[in-house]
Amino acid sequence: MKVLAYGEIMDGGASVFSSVAKRDGKKLIMTFSGVIRIDYPYKHLQGYIADLERLIPEENLESVEFDFRELSFCNSNGFYIIMDITELIIAQVDGPVFVKRLEDDDWQQETLPILLNVDEPDIGERVVFEDLPEI
């Protein structure tokens, strides 16, 4: 497993959110952990997004796994940053998109599919949700 990129949000001197992009064979694994509560998360994560834009096309990856199980809270201002990251990855990696999410979490069940744009047939047919209990 090789770490390709890492991004985090610092708030009040502590890390409150982190995302890691790792290569595992031909699969890209992206984890999202912590909480997104701040008003303007893009300010903290624009470097991470730039790294992903630069690095992912060079990796010849065949599938993606997004793991949201440790993202325990996302305010409505965090929606755009989740869309920015996932849209970028889905566009750059052909193949299936596996999404691990919490079975008992409203935002992951109801809103995450909107953010992933699964209503678009080209995306919806590639996305496979796996509903799991809290870790």
């Binding site: 409505s76 201002n77 929606f79 409203d106 935002w107 109801e110 809103t111």
Partner: peptide, 11 residues
């Protein structure tokens, strides 16, 4: 902003 109330109803 602008999403909070819709979110509370839809989500």
């Amino acid at each position: 902003g602008g999403l909070g109330l819709i979110r509370l109803a839809a989500e």
